[in-house]
Amino acid sequence: MSVLSVRSLSKTFGGVHAVNDVSFDIGKGEFLALIGPNGAGKSTTFNMINGQLTPDSGDILIGDKSIAGMAPRDIWRLGVGRTFQVAATFGSMTVVENVQMALISHARGILGLWRPAASLHRERALELLAQVGMADAADRPSRELAYGDVKRIELAIALANDPQLLLMDEPTAGMAPRERNDLIKLVKALVVERGISVLFTEHSMDVVFSYADRIIVLARGRLIADGNAAAIRDNAKVREVYFGTGKTFQETAS
């Protein structure tokens, strides 16, 4: 059974079909890339799945539960973690506190007024930080971290509620090639280990071709291709609207 099913999803902004009748599924443990030109509807699709936008029509299912129009925080409670295109952490907190917040929330302890938050779930938070290689930075203010490290913290936060699905909006945006590779390798290892499914958008074709199990392509709001790396690479339509000649990215043989 699919972890996530998107059924005939549509969204219109001021008469323009941003997303037009899009359907796809993600199986358990699948690493699915969503690519397409700027303005193709990737972000809109993404934001409908994570709850920031309500679809005009169509449905989104987590397992067999419809989440269309649900608030992001309720979707999270169903086991959907996410990372942002511009990494978002709580700048006024330390690294470990950032992860603790997610754990406290997961345990429904947010309204606690008495016990100091810094003492709650610290062990578990440190474990998660160790898994993303950031244990050493646990007590540093998160605003002081380099960008690549902030992305790792986000990953630890996203893993805090044992998600079954991870939504990653351009996970490697703003990173150098080597950092990109390290981060995606890390994500891949963690999700394989835990059997998490991942839906991610990405502009770095190196990353997409090297790591995605399957690729779906959006253009002008419609799904124009769905297949593995080889099939997508050879798809004439995708070449025309998205890849161009391909000389600005590396053609990695897979």
């Binding site: 994570n50 920031q52 608030a71 992001p72 925080r73 999270w76 409670r77 996410r82 942002f84 978002a88 952490t89 709580f90 700048g91 006024s92 907190m93 506190e97 917040m101 997610a102 406290i104 929330s105 997961h106 302890g109 947010i110 309204l111 606690g112 007024l113 008495w114 016990r115 100091p116 938050a117 810094a118 709650l120 936060i157 805090a160 509620n161």
Partner: peptide, 28 residues
Amino acid sequence: RRFLFAPFGYAMRAGRDSPLRAEAIGID
């Protein structure tokens, strides 16, 4: 002061620092 050091105070700051991230970890 006690409230500020408790989860509630942290949640308040979380909502201020990054409302999107806060909502994405289940904070109303």
